[in-house]
Simulated assay, not measured.
Amino acid sequence: MIKKIKGKVLNIEDEFIDIEIGPLTIEAFPSYRIMKDLKEGDDYNFYASLEINEWNTSFYVFKDEIEISVYKALKTVSKIGPKTAARITKTNDAENVAIMISSEDVKGLSKLPGIGKKTAERLISELKNKFDIGKLEKADNSISDSVDALEALGFDRAIIIKNIKALNLEDKSTEEIIKILLSKM
């Protein structure tokens, strides 16, 4: 099993990166945080997962322990394989995915690639107590309504949830929550 690798990034494409490790060059599928911070020609330490099945061999790389732990947790859920888990961690910050699962955000999870409402409910059912990072209690109606309203205005749901996590919004009306969040974003 491969746990970590250190290598030089040779090429960055939309779907994959090429990593030079000694005399080998590996094509790897990167995560969200890697794509956000990566530069060609630099050396990096990656967390890694090699997935082998009867049809394919794929190599996935992650920036930190949070990303790989979310990836590993996602692929334990029935009907979510390594490809879907990797697609989720490539298009979304892993911490935000963990927050959505912990806060039982079916609507937010349903927007993830390859995830519908039933799969989102399964994710919550199987993983809601798995993550200690960024736990939010299940959102009450005013917080949930505020998230929906700000998202309708064009704000990113993950950023809204991160801001809610950082604030004490108990016993506030929907309007008050929206005003507070707008001043913070």
Rank of each mutant, 00 (worst) to 15 (best):
P113Q: 13
K90D: 02
G81S: 14
V70A: 03
L109E: 00
E67R: 00
E121A: 12
N96Y: 09
F131W: 08
E121K: 10
N129K: 15
T91E: 09
A86V: 03
P113Y: 14
E95F: 00
A120E: 04
I101W: 01
G108R: 02
K117S: 10
I115N: 02
A85M: 06
N96Q: 08
K107C: 14
E95S: 01
D105C: 12
I99H: 04
I133E: 11
G81I: 05
I124V: 08
E65L: 10
K130C: 04
L127R: 09
K90H: 09
N92M: 06
A139P: 07
V106M: 10
K83W: 06
D140R: 13
I66Q: 02
E137Y: 13
S69D: 06
D140Q: 14
I88E: 00
T119G: 05
K130Y: 06
I124C: 07
I88H: 02
K111F: 15
D140Y: 14
K90I: 03
L127M: 15
G81Y: 05
T84C: 13
R87Y: 11
K79M: 11
I66H: 01
S103N: 07
A120W: 00
E104S: 14
Y71P: 01
R122A: 08
K107R: 15
P82A: 15
S110V: 15
E126A: 14
K79A: 12
L123S: 03
I115G: 01
I115F: 03
G114S: 15
I66C: 04
S69T: 04
A85R: 01
I99A: 06
D140W: 13
I66V: 11
E65A: 09
L74M: 04
K117I: 13
K107M: 10
D140S: 15
K130I: 04
L112T: 05
E121F: 08
N92A: 10
A94C: 02
E104A: 14
N96A: 13
S110Y: 13
V97P: 00
T89K: 02
